[in-house]
Structures are given as C-alpha cells and as structure tokens.
Design a protein around this nucleic acid. Structure first.
Lengths: 227, 227
DNA sequence: GCACACGATATTGTATGCAATCTTGTGTCG
DNA sequence: CGACACAAGATTGCATACAATATCGTGTGC
C-alpha cells in the first residue's frame, strides 16, 4: 500500500522478496538466482544483489560464496535462539506498550487483528501469518522503541521461516486469540498482564513447533513469484 | 587476526570501516564519499557501495538518497533506545553465560580484558573501547546465543557512536573494573550476580552520558583512514 | 564397471560507464 | 544589497560487460 514515491528500488525488491517469504510463497531452501530475480522484476542484477544482501543481513537469505543466494533454512538451534531472543525482547516491550497505549494505537492494532481474521477467513493463511507478525512489530512501535522494533522485525521474519519448517499442528486459531487477549490487556493499560500474555504467547508458539527432525528439502523458484 | 582466506571483499571493507568507527577514528557525521573510499582501499565503487549498505543496516552509517553515506549521528532518543535494548538483552544473557561458562571461555575473556588494559595503558583509548565491546559480544557467544550476539554486536557498534557523541567524563576506569567484576561472577558460575552486575554496568554507562545537548558537527574524511 | 581428471557451462564477483539527482557557484532582477 | 533562477559540477543510482569460480557432464585409464 505504501508505495513511497521514490523508493531506492533495491529496497523495493527486498520488500517484495521478504513478503514472499513471509507469506510462505518462497519456501526455505529455494535458490534465488540473480539473473532470474532480475528478470522477474525487470531490473538489473545490481539492485537484486543489493536486495539479497539486505535480506541476508536480516537472516532471511543465506549467501554462499560463488554459489548464490538461498532462502534461509533455520536450523533447530537457530529456531531456539530466535525464540530465546524474542522471549527477552517482546514481553517487556509489550508491557511498555500497554502503559503508553493511546486510542489511535488501539484502533490500529484492532485493524491489524481484523485484517488477520479476514485473511484467515479468505483462506490466505500466508497473509494471515504475515499480518500476525506485523502485530508484534506494531507493539514495539507503540512502546516507542524503534530499535527494538527493528530487531523484532528481523526475528519475526526468521520466525516465519521457522514456522514454515517446523510447524506441528494446523491450528492457526491460537494466534488470533492470543493477539486479542493481548490487545485487551493493553487497552486496559495492564502492563503486567500484557507482559505475561506475551510471554505465554511466545511459549505457545515455541511449543507448537516440532524441533526434533532434520532440515527439509529445497524447491524451484519462478512459480512462487507470481506477483 | 582471522583473515579468512577468501573474504567477500565487500565484507573486508565494511569491517575496516566499522573498526575505524569503533576506534573513534571516524567521527559521527563524517561523509563517506564512494570514490574516495574506493580509492583509499584500492577497490571499485561497487564493493564500497555493498560495504556501506551493510554498515547502514547495522546502524553505523546513514544512507541519504542521492546525497551519500555518512557516519551515523545517533540522536538522543536513539541513544536511549540502544541502551534500552541492551538492558533487555545483556543481563539475562550474562546469566546464561555464567551458568555455561567453561575454562576455555574464562581464559578467552581474561585475555580480552588483558588486551583492553594493555591498549588503555598504551594510550589507545579507541582500541580499548573496541575491545571492551568485544567483551560484551563474547559473553553472548559463551551463552551460546549467536543470534543475540549479533544483535548485541550491532548495539555495541551504535553504542560506540553514542559514546563518541555524548560521553561526559573522561574516566575509562569504570569499564575495565566492571568487566573484571563480571568475569569473577561468571567464573564462579553465579548467574544471578552476573545478571545484576551487567544491569548495573549498563546503567553506569547510560548515566555517564550527557543526553541533553544537541547533536554535534561533522568533519573531513581521509585523515582518519590511515590504515 | 568404477574412479578420477578434465573441460564446457553456468553463476557469482567485480569493474566500468552512463543517466538521474543533488549541490553549489554565478548572474540577473527587484 | 538581498533573493531568486539557472547552469555547471559533483555524486549517487543503475545497467552492462568482463573476470573468477563453482558445478556438472564427459571421457579416459585402471
């Protein structure tokens, strides 16, 4: 929606690719051939390389020397680390957000949840997952912590990959329910409760993963980049 | 020390520049002209651009569209955010590290502190500061949290800029003393104490800043890139 | 028939050149 | 004398071309 008038172009590509990963249209392990991506988006390899480098820094893409870029396949250990980091950052941040919450913020969060529901109802599970991630980031923004919000954004992105790899059940219900409970606590400025809820939410997410099997198999590319 | 045999070259430049910033040889606000940097390191603008982009992502460099790259000048607000994030990440991580600590880790940390002292004694305050940052990152590595270590690394880098801008006193003593106390707690596997010490250490750092004045003035470039 | 070595192909790494944009100096008008 | 407009210069954004390296198929020797 927010097409910045003069976006640096490589950022645009990076965002498109990131969105594709978020929405599980690009599976972990997919090779991102520079020429191919450049062709798909009608730009030069130069900007594709810049985009891939940025995504690599975010942990969404793995760059192997002279081998190319691949959508990252977080290991089990990495998965634990990501949720460990989230457990350190997000509960406290949720508390701060609850304390600083304004009516405008509330409305924005509510809108997020509504969109999430809508996407879920429309069978767009990928988009729902993406929006659910935005919800977490928005909380950090409300807490007025842009730096932490950036970190959480990176962790959310990698969480998306982790979920794609290690998701156990099929119930995405828990997500929106947990988010709704969080929203209520924050609307009531109950920081302690928000912190607890967030902690529990992250724990639920972690336990809903099956972190025992080995990494999975790659896949092809162009089919997933329709948009 | 660890010159990888075939480093991606843009990483090399990025590390060199990052080191220069860490050691306060590059002041906040310094313009990083692409041609100039390319000339200094004997490479093409292409790799310089890649390096600058990476540094931008780390928050060390600010990229302004069609205006160029500048060493970042963290605002007062950003400074608070950075230390807020560190306060969330580092104490708990120090606790984990204390619990997992091995003899090898201890030796490595001790070596870090020794180097820090040596640099300080040699009047190389910049290098001492850099090593002091490495100490914090090493703790996260000992805690076996590579992801968090990466985040802390970014925060340390920005902290270096913040210190360059807002440092109040001249005493760098507190640093190494605090680190020594931390080391002892961790050597004794006293997680709770390590956590408290780290929390206090970060608070000391924060209160030793003068976060009231306005951002400072830029400077020229080539003089700072001797090496 | 299998293993190793070599060469063709493909892909990434880097350099260079041109176009777009911003900065800055100069001149003119009020 | 000050302010605005415009043009020249400088710098970044992007695309293309070449070089370095890895992958993979093929062939030969054992």
């Amino acid at each position: 929606m927010d097409h910045s008038p003069k976006e640096p172009a490589s950022d645009h590509i990076a965002n498109r690719l990131a969105l594709a990963v978020h929405e599980h249209r690009l599976a972990p392990g997919t090779k991102l051939n520079e020429d191919e991506v450049a062709d798909v988006y009608g730009v030069s390899r130069t900007v594709v390389r810049a985009a891939l480098q940025r995504l690599s820094h975010d942990g969404l893409v793995e760059l192997r020397r002279n081998r190319g870029a691949f959508v990252a396949q977080p290991s089990v250990r990495e998965a634990r680390e990501v949720f460990e980091a989230r457990a350190l950052l997000e509960p406290r941040t949720a508390r701060s957000a609850a304390e600083r919450m304004t009516g405008t913020d509330l409305a924005a969060l509510q809108r997020h949840i509504d969109e999430e529901h809508a996407a879920l109802a429309a069978g767009e599970g990928g988009r729902a997952l993406y929006l659910s991630g935005l919800f977490h980031i928005e909380i950090a923004r409300i807490a007025d912590q842009e730096t932490i919000a950036t970190f959480i954004g990176q962790l959310i992105a990698r969480s998306s990959l982790i979920i794609a790899l290690y998701w156990k059940r099929r119930t995405a219900m828990c997500e929106s329910h947990a988010h709704h409970a969080l929203l209520e606590a924050m609307a009531a400025h109950d920081g302690a409760k928000a912190e607890d809820l967030m902690r529990g939410h992250l724990l639920d997410l972690l336990t809903s993963l099956d972190l025992r099997n080995t990494p999975p198999a790659p896949r092809s590319l162009r089919e997933a980049l329709g948009t």
